[in-house]
């Protein structure tokens, strides 16, 4: 009964990501919840790496933990948001109902996973996948089967680049005259 490195990694990083995800939810100060989310992203990158998806783990580190979260933290810091007293939406009954709904949904997911545990298992797993080889396979796929989606991504990023600049230049607004 050997506990391989991958199992150990799963439990360490899984626990870390769950704890920091709860931190995102429960911290009243938005900057602390942004830093907790950054920690979640880093632990998820570790989880991807423990599943031998090396390049995607690197991309997760660079794009999510290094760019998107920096934007969130920068926006929060620029607007000097102190911790709010009423962080959670009011209404105990509504809150309780939301909790029950989410609980039921997660219960359904877990039941589905548990029942189908044996059918989901795939072929034998390569213990160690080399980073460069798996990235080349990913590239074959990206420029072979999904080449149209790849070009669509380029167009999407162009549109967002122009849209974000236009958004930041809006002076007026529906209530501009107030």
């Amino acid at each position: 009964m050997t506990l391989t490195a991958q199992d150990l990694l799963f439990y360490i990083l899984g626990g870390l990501s769950l704890a920091s995800a709860l931190g995102v939810l429960l911290m009243t100060n938005p900057i602390y919840s942004a830093l907790c989310l950054a920690l979640t992203m880093v632990s998820l990158a570790g989880l991807y790496a423990s599943m031998q998806a090396w390049f995607v783990a690197g991309v997760q580190l660079i794009v999510y933990a290094g760019a998107v979260m920096v934007l969130f933290v920068m926006v929060l810091m620029l607007f000097d948001l102190k911790s709010e007293i009423k962080a959670f939406s009011r209404g105990a009954v509504a809150g309780f109902m939301k909790l029950v709904a989410v609980g039921l949904m997660t219960g359904a997911f877990l039941a589905a996973i548990y029942n189908s545990a044996d059918t989901l298992l795939g072929t034998s797993l390569a213990a160690h996948v080399d980073g460069t080889v798996s990235t080349k396979a990913l590239a074959q796929l990206l420029f072979g089967k999904y080449v149209f989606a790849f070009e669509a991504m380029g167009v999407l990023l162009l549109i967002i680049a122009i849209g974000a600049v236009a958004l930041s230049r809006i002076e007026g607004g529906t209530h501009a005259d107030e």
Binding site: G66, A67, V68, V70, L71, M74, L157, A161, A164
Partner: peptide, 10 residues
């Protein structure tokens, strides 16, 4: 920061 994200992904 926004433009950095978009060009970084490209």
């Amino acid at each position: 920061a926004i433009l950095f994200i978009l060009f970084d992904i490209e």
